[in-house]
Amino acid sequence: MTTTYTAKDLVTDQDVRWCPGCGDYSILKQVQTVIPELGIEKEKLVFISGIGCSSRFPYYMDTFGMHSIHGRATAIASGLKATRPDLSVWIVTGDGDSMSIGGNHLIHLLRRNFDVNILLFNNEIYGLTKGQYSPTSERGKITKSTPMGSVDHPFNPLALCLGADSTFIARTMDRDPVHLRTTLKRAHQHKGTSLLEIYQNCNVFNDGAFELFTEKSSKPEEALFLEHGQPLVFGINKNKGIKLDGFKPVVVELEGNSLNDLWIHDESDRMKASLLTRFFGEMGAENHLPRPFGVFYQENRYTYEDAMLEQLEEATSKGIGNLDAMIQGKNTWVVE
């Protein structure tokens, strides 16, 4: 189906209130660019968010939208999708919103696998409340609430989501519009809950958190772009690869190694996806693994709303309920 609207039609009359230079701008722009290409009728689009900087997103999208309460967008979207499977439901959330206060709803949405898309803006900080550490901030992070450094061990979002039996996990970044658009499309195409983690720079409270992956100088060495069926290759001259030594991924120089010996990315391989989510170690360590971007894992599993409908259809196939009979029940008596 072709749609008749363009990116411009998705812009609202509201002033965008993010700080100048915030990574959210780029994400908004790419979402507005991609959506008209997806063939969804405009009135069928719904954006639901919780609380946080990212959660202002729906105000800037001229679609149906709800800016709800902290952490609950995932649960609200579940109820909406259960009753309105015809809608295209997008959840916009941040690392605090989805993994701190809303952690419970996130994992339950993933296991239930409603056909919705989650855009998780991860900036590893609390922006809206002005700079406290978040559940994804690294240990030792100095913030307003942790003057001596945070003692919290951080979440590894994609490992967490895969652990919750997510059927689609992917990672992208605000500073790579092309990759962002491609992964957004993939997220939309997946039937089931798509979890897209987007590295987003908060230039006010956590500037440069992801610069190793986003800046030209370090990106080739530090970011690994996954493509289904392709070997894991990275490096400034595409001169490095990843090979599996048993269960242990090791970085190898391509010289003297055949591409065929490298780890070939397979989006349907859950075990390997699980290893990929663990490419999460300290940066800068000798021979450390690069951070993967792209689709880690994709699986086709029944969606909750379909299973729910199936049960209703099965029940109604034996006859649609009669309210009067139901009210009457089985045992009655007559008073003359």
Partner: peptide, 30 residues
């Protein structure tokens, strides 16, 4: 038990999801 009436029951993960999912459904016209 009233699935033959089209009733959708949802045993949520907690009380908060129970009500917020209902709010989502109401937003959609249920």
């Amino acid at each position: 038990k009233y699935k033959n009436f089209g009733v959708k029951t949802f045993q949520a993960e907690d009380e908060i999801a129970a009500i917020t999912s209902a709010i989502g459904a109401s937003f959609g016209g249920a």
